[in-house]
Simulated scan of single mutants.
Amino acid sequence: MRLSRQRRMVLDLLWAEKSHLSARDIFEKLNDLGRNIGHTSVYQNLEALQSAGVIECLDRANGRLYGYRSDPHSHITCLESGAIEDLDVELPPDLLRQIEERTGFRIESYTLNLTGRRCRRPLEKQP
């Protein structure tokens, strides 16, 4: 894949924001930053980057959101604000084996989509 100037602008914005944005958000943010890019160019470049596996695309009821990560990971969505956070979680091997036994599938990778309401600050990781 050729990394055009427009693709580079889209990638730089997604990496800087580290959040999940709609194509419209990306278009507006780039133009607010003085980058002249059209709606069509944003959509075409997002599609190309997503098809090449460089970025992720989340299909939501209110449209598609694009994120800077392409590696396997999970998400947690706030039911109040709609904010989506990336979540790296590893399921216990016993649970994976149990799912395999119940379904007859050999699990090669997985992602979780969790929803909830933020009720407190995340726990600090213990050293």
Rank of each mutant, 00 (worst) to 15 (best):
D71L: 07
R60G: 14
C57A: 12
D59W: 09
C57T: 01
R117P: 12
S74A: 06
H39R: 09
L123Q: 15
D94A: 12
V89P: 10
R102M: 06
R120E: 15
G38E: 06
D86Q: 11
E80R: 11
T111P: 03
L123G: 13
V89Q: 07
L87W: 15
Y66K: 04
A61Y: 08
E85T: 13
G38M: 05
E90G: 05
R97T: 12
S81N: 05
E90L: 06
H39S: 12
L58S: 03
G67M: 01
L114E: 06
E100Q: 11
H39M: 09
R60Y: 06
L49P: 05
E90S: 13
E80Q: 14
H73F: 00
A48E: 12
R69P: 00
R117V: 10
R60Q: 14
I99N: 02
L91A: 04
C119Q: 12
T103Y: 08
I76A: 14
R118S: 13
A83Y: 06
L95G: 00
V54T: 04
V54L: 08
Q50V: 07
Q44V: 04
D71T: 11
P93S: 05
L123S: 14
A48G: 04
G53K: 08
V42H: 00
T77F: 09
D86T: 13
L114R: 05
E85I: 10
C57L: 07
I37Q: 01
R120A: 15
Q50S: 14
I55R: 01
Y110M: 01
Q50G: 07
Y43F: 08
L46G: 00
A83G: 08
E124T: 15
L79V: 09
C119N: 13
Y43R: 07
G38K: 05
R60L: 10
S109H: 12
D71A: 06
L96G: 05
E56W: 02
I76D: 03
G67F: 03
E90K: 10
D88A: 04
P72R: 12
A83V: 10
R117C: 12
E80Y: 11
N113A: 13
E124K: 14
T77R: 13
E80A: 12
C78L: 08
L79W: 04
T115F: 12
I84F: 03
H75M: 11
Q50C: 14
T115K: 08
A83R: 09
V42C: 02
Y43C: 03
R69H: 01
C78K: 11
G63N: 04
R97F: 07
H75R: 10
L91K: 01
S109C: 08
R97S: 10
E47H: 04
E56V: 05
R35H: 15
L123A: 14
L114G: 11
A52T: 10
L95F: 15
Q44N: 12
E56A: 02
E56N: 13
N45C: 00
S81C: 07
T40M: 03
E101F: 04
L114M: 10
G63S: 01
E100L: 06
S70G: 02
Q98D: 10
L49R: 05
L112P: 03
G63Q: 07
I76E: 13
